[in-house]
Amino acid sequence: MEKTGIPGKAVKRPVLRKAMTHPYLVLAFRIYIGSLFVYASMYKINYASEFAETIASYQLVPYWAVNLLALVMPWMELICGLFLVIGFRTKSAAATIAGLLALFSAAVAISLFRDLPIGCGCFHALGEQMSWKTLLRDLVWLGMAVHVYLFDSALQVEKRFALAIRDI
């Protein structure tokens, strides 16, 4: 990982990089994103019809897929969130969540462009009106998820397992 540039900066970069990629930072992101999604999925699972309404309000998904999506997506959020929190299959979970977030971001962006007066629907049906803040928030989360995907290493359940079986 060599970087060209001013020698002075070259010294700083590794430090910055190290800070950026510190396992604890990644861990914090991971746990945050994970618990966020677990929390977010709770309402949607409980009030599936309202979530279906929310999905419908974006006017992106065809009518026959709305309910399906309303049923499956919250559970995906829950599972991936749990995985992230626990530290199991973090890479796959992070990738899934990043994908979902990308999806949400795109939907929000489209809706914003369409000027649809709808709520985000991320947490509950009567959430605040969608705005660019929502999009930004989603993008930040996406960034975190990607970060987790790339750099997660600490507190993984599987790490212990890996250590154990390395002996074999």
Binding site: M76, K91, F161
Partner: peptide
């Protein structure tokens, strides 16, 4: 063990299926 560090389609499918 090697798979731990990696991501695979199987995971996605499983997550989807579970969901």
């Amino acid at each position: 063990a090697d798979r731990i560090g990696r991501v695979s389609l199987l995971d996605f499918s499983l997550i989807l299926l579970a969901a």
